[in-house]
Every structure is written in structure tokens, then in C-alpha cells.
Design a protein around this nucleic acid. Structure first.
Length: 99
DNA sequence: TGTCCGCGGGTGT
DNA sequence: ACACCCGCGGACA
């Protein structure tokens, strides 16, 4: 992927924004976001958008899972990353509650 | 439960 | 402009 312009399309931003709105420890499905941006059938494009997200630190792409509950994929099919990250977020929630 | 097709958009050629 | 790709989803066998 060249992405020499590093400029994402409107669609991409919509997906990233919705993903960024996902509360800590919460999860959303690709379709959920797709519907949110007005394209309920573009779950695929949503996943691709999250994949190419330029700000993985602020875009909780690991919070986005499949509609059937599966983690879908994070790096290929290594859903282990997602599980760990989601579990970590659970701890973060717990920390907030403690404070 | 496993496989196939369709949908929507991206990127490369 | 065309073809292939993708971290899906739903239907069908």
C-alpha cells in the first residue's frame, strides 16, 4: 500500500470516528458502524478502513468485532491480540472505578 | 458446521 | 477503467 497522499476518504473518516467513539471496554460490530455511517451493507469496507487506520493508538480497532460475536480478525486471524487488548481494557475500567 | 455469494469501497495496474 | 483485495454478513447446503 502506497497511500502516498496519506489522505483517507470521507468514508474512512466516518468509520474511524465511529470507532473512536466506542467506549472503553465496549465493543461494536462492523455492521453496527456500517449502519451508523449509512451503509449497512458495507461492513467489509468498514473492516478495511479500520485496518488502514493511521492512528491505531486512538482508534480502538480491536474493539470492533464481528456481528456474530467473534473477534473477527486483527492481524490476519490472530484474534489473540484483540482478546488481550480487550481484557486489558477491562482492567483499565476497573482502575477508573477504583479511583 | 462448512462453504459460497453478495455488498461496498480501496488500492494497484 | 478494470481487476483483485478485505479484519464481514448472511444465506444455503
Amino acid at each position: 500500500m502506497k497511500t502516498k497522499k496519506s489522505k483517507l476518504t470521507k468514508f474512512q473518516w466516518q468509520v474511524l470516528k465511529e470507532a473512536a467513539k466506542i467506549p472503553l471496554g465496549q465493543t461494536r460490530s462492523y455492521k453496527w458502524i456500517a449502519k451508523k455511517i449509512g451503509l449497512p451493507k458495507s461492513a467489509r469496507a468498514v473492516g478495511q478502513a479500520l485496518k488502514i487506520n493511521p492512528y491505531p493508538l486512538i482508534i480502538p480497532c480491536h474493539r470492533v468485532i464481528k456481528e456474530n460475536g467473534a473477534l473477527g480478525g486483527y492481524m490476519g486471524k490472530n484474534t489473540t491480540r484483540k482478546e488481550k487488548l480487550l481484557n486489558l481494557e477491562k482492567e483499565i475500567q476497573n482502575n477508573f472505578r477504583k479511583i
